[in-house]
């Protein structure tokens, strides 16, 4: 081994933006080295899309094509919400491996590793959403609002992913193993996504359940996404969809910072 110490002077400390960019680069590298994670992300939603469209679609909406118009915005919300679990799992893995100890012993902006996680998440949501939308389009889904509707929908999906992501970052910080994060995540997300208007019109549900579905944040997000895709969205719908992500961010971001510093 030759002399490992650097000869030149130390560089100036990096800005928070540059630091976050580096963590984002790491997220991109993860996609390059672990492409199979994409499979995990889109397998279930693809299966759901095919099952619901062809098996239940006719019974629920008269025809598969008609059902697609209803279902695709919903499954996009579901995909995004479910995929937030993975950032919590990734975080839990990093913590158990001691990688975060390395980050925490560096003189960098202390939220940068989380900002990096978020950037990775945004990337994940965009890719998974694009794949699901692509399949929908191939099956005959036609958003009335066209490309602008799709772009607006994806912007909303990213906001939803950002807000919900905090839940699993908190779990990732508190729970010891990545598998537990996943199990806990699915235990919460399955009821919340099924008891919503993603798959079926809640009109046939019992009254007490309808009351829940009406205020379920997942329903509010799905309604807004449908309206964006159809080109009929008003600020009220968008505002209601963003309510849960905004509240989650306001409550959980400080909690994440506190948990992270306390460790």
């Amino acid at each position: 081994m030759s002399a490992p110490l650097p000869q030149g002077p130390r560089p100036a400390p990096p800005s928070p933006a540059s630091t976050s960019l580096t963590f984002a680069w790491r997220a991109v590298l993860k996609f390059k080295h672990v492409p199979e994670q994409l499979f995990d992300l889109v397998m279930t939603p693809i299966m759901f899309t095919l099952l619901f469209t062809f098996i239940f679609g006719g019974a629920l909406a008269g025809s598969s094509t008609a059902y697609l118009q209803w279902f695709i915005p919903g499954i996009l919300v579901q995909t995004t919400v479910f995929n937030t679990v993975y950032s919590g799992m990734g975080l839990s893995t990093d913590l158990s491996k001691g990688l975060f100890d390395r980050f925490r012993s560096l003189p960098i902006w202390s939220l940068a590793p989380f900002a990096g996680l978020m950037v990775g998440d945004m990337l994940r949501h965009t890719i998974a959403g694009a794949i699901i939308l692509g399949i929908g389009l191939a099956l005959g889904y036609r958003p009335e609002a066209g490309l602008p509707g799709i772009l607006a929908s994806f912007a909303l999906l990213l906001a939803i992913g950002f807000g919900w992501g905090w839940i699993f970052i908190v779990l990732g910080l508190v729970v010891r193993t990545p598998m537990t994060v996943m199990t806990l995540g699915f235990a919460v997300l399955f009821p919340v996504t099924f008891a919503s208007n993603i798959m079926v019109d809640p009109a046939t549900m019992p009254g007490w359940l309808q009351a829940f579905v009406a205020v379920n944040p997942v329903s509010l997000m799905t309604t807004a996404l449908r309206a964006l895709m159809a080109g009929t969205a008003g600020w009220g719908e968008i505002g209601r969809a963003l309510l849960a992500p905004a509240i989650l961010t306001a409550l959980l971001a400080p909690l994440v910072l506190w948990l992270y510093r306390r460790r």
């Binding site: 130390r10 560089p11 100036a12 400390p13 990096p14 540059s18 630091t19 580096t22 680069w25 790491r26 590298l29 993860k30 080295h33 672990v34 990093d94 491996k97 001691g98 990688l99 100890d101 390395r102 980050f103 560096l106 960098i108």
Partner: peptide, 23 residues
């Protein structure tokens, strides 16, 4: 005591990432 490295990344990528974080 436990490797504080990103296992999915290459050795080179790990060091480049940390060098970037040092500025």
């Amino acid at each position: 005591q436990f490797a504080s490295l990103d296992e999915d990344l290459t050795g080179r990528e790990n060091l480049v990432m940390l060098a970037r974080l040092w500025g």
